[in-house]
Amino acid sequence: TEDEKKIQELLKRANGDVSKAEKLAQSQGNEELARRLREYANK
Rank of each mutant, 00 (worst) to 15 (best):
V18R: 04
S27P: 01
R38Q: 04
L11S: 00
T1W: 14
E31R: 07
L10A: 06
Y40M: 11
D3I: 15
G29D: 04
S27V: 08
L33N: 01
L33V: 04
G16D: 03
L33S: 01
S19H: 13
A41W: 14
R36S: 05
G16Y: 14
N15G: 14
G29N: 05
L37T: 01
K43E: 09
V18S: 04
K12P: 00
G29T: 02
Q8I: 14
E39C: 13
Q8W: 15
K23I: 09
D3P: 06
A34L: 10
N42I: 11
K5P: 06
N30K: 06
D17L: 04
K5Y: 11
R36Y: 07
T1I: 12
K12D: 08
Q26V: 13
Q28T: 10
V18I: 12
K5G: 09
A41N: 06
K12R: 15
A21M: 03
K23Y: 09
R38F: 03
S27D: 14
E31D: 11
I7D: 01
N30L: 15
L11K: 00
E4W: 15
L33D: 03
K20E: 10
E2M: 11
R36D: 02
E32P: 04
A21L: 04
R38P: 00
E22M: 15
A34Y: 04
A34N: 01
R35P: 01
A41K: 08
V18E: 02
E9F: 04
R13W: 15
N42H: 08
N42Q: 13
A14Y: 10
D17M: 03
L11I: 10
S27E: 15
K23A: 13
S19D: 13
K6N: 09
R35V: 07
L24Q: 04
L37E: 00
N15E: 07
L33G: 00
T1Y: 13
K6G: 07
E4Y: 14
Y40G: 02
N42S: 13
R36C: 07
R38G: 02
E39T: 04
E32L: 08
R38E: 02
I7V: 06
G16W: 15
K23R: 11
E4T: 09
L10Y: 12
K20A: 13
A14N: 03
T1Q: 11
K6T: 12
D3Y: 15
K43R: 12
E39Y: 06
R35M: 11
T1H: 12
G29K: 03
E32V: 06
A21E: 01
L37I: 15
S19A: 13
E32K: 06
K43C: 09
E2Q: 10
K6S: 10
K43L: 12
D3A: 10
N42F: 10
G16E: 02
E31V: 10
V18N: 02
N30I: 03
T1S: 13
Q26A: 10
N15L: 06
R35C: 09
E22N: 03
K5E: 11
T1D: 14
Y40R: 05
E2F: 13
R13A: 13
E2H: 09
E9K: 05
K23D: 05
A41V: 12
N30V: 03
E4Q: 09
T1C: 15
E9C: 15
K5R: 13
E31Y: 15
K20T: 09
S27W: 09
R36H: 06
L24R: 03
N15P: 01
K5C: 15
S19V: 12
E31M: 13
Q26I: 15
E22W: 11
L37M: 06
E32W: 12
E4G: 06
E2S: 11
D17Q: 03
G29A: 03
Q28S: 10
A14F: 15
A25Y: 02
Q8G: 05
A34I: 08
E9R: 05
A25P: 00
K20F: 11
A25K: 01
A41C: 14
A25F: 02
L10V: 04
L33T: 02
Q8H: 10
E22H: 07
E22C: 15
Q8L: 14
A14G: 02
E2P: 10
E39D: 08
K6Q: 14
L37Q: 00
A21T: 00
N15F: 08
K6E: 15
E4F: 14
R38C: 07
E2D: 13
D17K: 03
K12L: 11
L10S: 02
A41T: 07
I7S: 02
K20P: 01
E9W: 07
Q8S: 07
A21K: 00
E9A: 09
R13G: 05
S27Q: 14
Q8P: 02
S19I: 12
S19P: 04
G16V: 01
G29M: 04
R13H: 07
Q26S: 07
K23H: 08
R38Y: 03
E4A: 09
R38H: 08
G16S: 03
L24H: 04
L11T: 00
K6M: 15
G29Y: 08
K20V: 14
E9V: 05
A21Y: 01
A21R: 01
E9H: 05
T1P: 12
V18P: 07
Y40P: 00
E31F: 15
K43D: 08
G29V: 03
T1L: 13
T1E: 12
V18K: 03
R13T: 07
L11V: 04
S19G: 11
L33R: 00
A34C: 07
T1M: 12
Q26H: 10
Q28M: 15
A21S: 01
V18F: 14
L33K: 00
K6P: 04
N30C: 14
E31H: 14
E4S: 08
R38I: 05
G16R: 02
K12V: 08
D17I: 05
D3C: 15
E32R: 08
I7E: 01
K20Y: 12
L24M: 13
S27I: 11
K12A: 13
A21F: 02
Q26N: 06
E31W: 15
R13K: 10
E2V: 10
Q8K: 13
E32Q: 08
R38N: 03
E22P: 01
K23E: 12
K5H: 10
E31Q: 10
K43M: 12
K6Y: 13
G16I: 02
